[in-house]
Design a protein around this nucleic acid. Sequence first.
DNA 1: ACTACCTTGTGAAGGAATTCACAAGCCCTC
DNA 2: GAGGGCTTGTGAATTCCTTCACAAGGTAGT
Lengths: 207, 207
Amino acid sequence: MKRIADSTVRRLSIYLRFLEEFEGRGLATVSSDELARRGGTTSAQVRKDLSFFGSFGKRGLGYSVPELATSLRGILGLEKDWRVVIVGAGKIGAALAQYGGFRQRGFHIIGAYDTNPDKVGRTLAGATIRSMDSFERDVAEGAPDIAVLAIPSERAQEVLDRIVSAGIKAVLNFAPAQLTAPLDVTVKTVNMAMELEGLSFALTNRD
Amino acid sequence: MKRIADSTVRRLSIYLRFLEEFEGRGLATVSSDELARRGGTTSAQVRKDLSFFGSFGKRGLGYSVPELATSLRGILGLEKDWRVVIVGAGKIGAALAQYGGFRQRGFHIIGAYDTNPDKVGRTLAGATIRSMDSFERDVAEGAPDIAVLAIPSERAQEVLDRIVSAGIKAVLNFAPAQLTAPLDVTVKTVNMAMELEGLSFALTNRD
DNA sequence: ACTACCTTGTGAAGGAATTCACAAGCCCTC
DNA sequence: GAGGGCTTGTGAATTCCTTCACAAGGTAGT
């Protein structure tokens, strides 16, 4: 398959969110134009995004809401249940663990880790917090698909290396650090400091 | 000034982070190549990014670490102290308020809001949580620059509208919703659900 | 069944961002 | 102070992404 741009995948997420809203309201069909308006893009963009994966609409009519929603869930891999471990049970890790959208979309938290002995043994979103000592063993056994990295940036690369060598191929990183990983491991970084600095830039440099 | 791409601004943030690390280690100069390696980009990209704002290096030598750091702080508007209000004192809002990188980089939380009466009156990161009733009045008085929006998506647009009409020009949104605002208001959205779906896509569609 | 009207799917055009490649400039040594 | 070795700054080339524009195909009404 041709390489799909990151921006395209992000928009598919957005479209799916609207489709689910429409599904809930019982709408039968939707046009690329409606999806575009709600998603802050253009109808041509919507059609082009979808065209990478096939042909889902009916000319003259638009898209069937439930069918397109199902197709998008398939494309995004959301029909599968993903197994997630949270590494770092501090403020951010705990907030994430309790974030409802997680489980709702098929991301199941099967484990949580922290190096702080005070935290080990407590529960977080239904999972018992464990020490990192057992990490590799647990991963071999529980086969998580995704690791959420929520620890201070000083130790982020080091822990990422452990995650990678344990065999996990997808990481959502919240440490404000630029991390390196092999090409077959996908790392997405959510960097609040960077977003704030983007706002600072916008406020400083407007016309 | 020519329009600066979002991606450029994000990279400037990254460069600045490395420069501050180098500053701490007492390094005097750095080349575009070193910055590129650490930032996961190319030396040409680094030089091009900087060239939009001026000429900061010495040919044959590289960049003075403290000088470039100062220049970047200036470009990003970080020499100023920004006044931030947090709207929504739930799990995410609370985690954000306590995030250390905030104050450290000159973002000062001057207020917090929640509609839940149980939460009103408690303190969050040194600020007393207030009811939204006084929001407009408080904004007129305290003149915050940035609002952090951490409420459920159903009410996000409505609250954003209040933020906008109160006169705030920069918003960091954590609700998984596509929001619309006037062009002179900058909205950055951090959408965890979208990032997770991006990982799901990557895991599903790899070669 | 014919016509009028929509909306998709997609090559082609256009625009934006990245990478290339090299002249210009600075330092250091001899 | 001339030459060699680096590294910057930047037009030009390239690659990537978005927008345009329209033929193809479907619906609905008569």
